[in-house]
Design a protein around this nucleic acid. Structure first.
Length: 470
DNA sequence: TCTTTGTTTAT
DNA sequence: TAAACAAAG
């Protein structure tokens, strides 16, 4: 019986379990997995690009363990897919949907062109819990506020995660490029030596981490997740953004714990829904990533010049505000930053330093191994106050109050700031190994005085807010 | 997913 | 005197 053959186009779904597109492809017949290095990869920031390489390595190995392979090709997606169709004679291309404007545009063109040539081009869910067009208000609009969004989805059914399918290999494999030749870590000089200690790539790593979190962490998640010195978060972000794990797998794992009476499990589901909310907004308003979601904020006098000394001090983590510098250093060294601290560094840049949040968004995009296009954009707009779900007051964090409340014994700050300490931690010192020599910083430098103090910055930002003209 | 200020309550 | 609370931005 002639079996059908499908190209499975991997993008941000680098797993075999709970993969609806892969499962459907496997059910049709032979599967040829492919990852394409197109502009969406070329344009990634240094850290996400490097992290992607680790994930691809793991996916390739996992496929080989199933008698399959990951074919790597470089070029515009449509051209590459057409070449592969020609070479292999497949009659279908399957993939998991993405929701940002660039990907949507590319994918609908691919779908149309391949469809015109008699190829079945089909997209599947899996990247989010709820397709953005399936969540709507009574009036039929998309949601702009988190809490009603949460209420509308909290009790919804989420499909039970699928097992990894068996894969049938083609009789002949098309040629593949070699992953090392792509040099995905080239922009990441600090990658191998420093960040590699913290990255945890691959589907099986994601599953063990999830297991550990559900066994131990989730019960106290609601309280511990806010304390940056503790390992109280799920640590799932780098897996979610690469698709090494699916949100549905996390949702169901949390539901099981919720039924067992684990206190933090619902809080964890709420955090998953924040991610979905970000994708919901991104899908309905793609400009979320590009500028003030509330256009009246264009009148706010943010500095947009990246060369300003405040921006340099912020990027180099020498603002003189310990919680801010600690967070920026954690990000530089580990590729991640505790969420509580993300809010603080974002607030300090956009309010105290009066610098445009897009400058910060781009720096995060370059530095975070868990960079997620929707989460990053919503997070920055939220902190800046320019986004949907805005507070009815001028949102401005006090970095001193926040440090007192969430890092009362300075454990987090001490972990990441070397200057002025007799015995700096290994992590604090590793920041100085990671940064470029051209920054000219040394752990024996004195810790700088605040470039803008908590009080002074608050006053200045409030003043700008009151005179903003809207 | 906040901060400040002023007031009340507990010790 | 500090902690808890309420209100307003």
């Amino acid at each position: 019986m002639p079996s059908k053959s499908t190209l499975l186009w991997f993008r941000r779904d680098l797993r075999l379990g709970d993969h609806p597109a892969l499962t459907a492809a496997a059910a049709r017949g032979t599967v040829i997995p492919v990852f394409i290095h197109d502009d969406s990869v070329a344009n990634l920031g240094a850290a996400p690009k490097w992290r992607l390489g680790l994930s691809l390595e793991c996916l390739g190995a996992a496929l080989e363990a199933k008698g399959s392979r990951l074919i790597l090709r470089r070029g515009p997606a449509l051209e590459v897919l057409e070449e592969l169709i020609e070479e292999t004679g497949v009659d279908a291309v399957y993939w998991s949907r993405l929701y940002d404007g660039t990907a949507q545009e590319r994918d609908s063109r691919v779908k149309e062109e391949l469809g015109n040539n008699g190829i079945e081009a089909k997209s599947f869910g899996g990247h989010v819990l709820f397709e953005p067009w399936t969540v709507a208000t009574q009036q039929g609009n998309f949601y702009k506020v988190y809490t009603p969004f949460w209420k509308s989805v909290r009790d919804r059914e989420v499909d039970t995660p699928l097992p990894a399918p068996d894969l049938t290999a083609p009789s002949e494999w098309p040629g593949s490029e070699a992953l090392p030749d792509w040099e995905l870590g080239a922009g990441m000089a600090r990658g191998e030596s420093i960040v590699r200690r913290f990255a945890n790539p691959g589907e099986s790593a994601a599953q063990s981490r999830l297991g550990a979190f559900m066994a131990q962490g989730v019960d106290e998640y609601a309280t511990r997740r806010d304390l940056p010195a503790e390992d109280g978060t799920s640590n799932m972000s780098e897996h979610l953004t690469t698709g090494e794990i699916s949100p549905a797998q996390l949702w169901h794992a949390a539901l099981r714990e919720e039924k067992d009476g684990k206190a933090g499990a619902e809080t964890f589901r709420k955090e998953l829904v924040w991610r979905d909310f970000a994708y919901h907004l991104l899908y309905h308003t793609p400009r979320l990533t590009e500028g003030n979601w509330r256009e009246e904020w264009d009148a706010f006098p943010w500095n947009e010049d990246e060369r300003r000394k405040e921006v340099t001090a912020w990027k180099q983590a020498r603002t003189g505000i310990p919680i801010v510098d600690a967070g920026l250093r954690e990000m530089y060294v580990t590729g991640r930053m505790h969420n509580r601290v993300r809010m603080n560094v974002a607030s300090y840049l956009s309010k105290h330093l009066m610098c445009h949040w897009l400058i910060g968004l781009k720096w995060f995009e370059d530095c975070l191994i868990d960079w997620d296009i929707a989460n990053n954009a919503l997070g920055w707009q939220w902190a800046a106050g320019s986004g949907p779900d805005a507070a009815p007051y001028f949102r401005i964090f006090n970095p001193e109050t926040q440090a007192k409340r969430f890092d009362p014994d300075h454990a987090y700050i001490k972990r990441w700031i070397a200057e002025g300490q007799e015995n700096p931690s290994k992590d604090a010192l590793s920041y100085f190994d990671a940064i470029p020599a051209s920054w000219g910083l040394s752990p024996s430098d004195p810790y700088p005085a605040p470039i803008v103090s908590a009080d002074e910055g608050r006053k200045r930002a409030l003043d700008a807010y009151e005179n903003r003209g809207f």
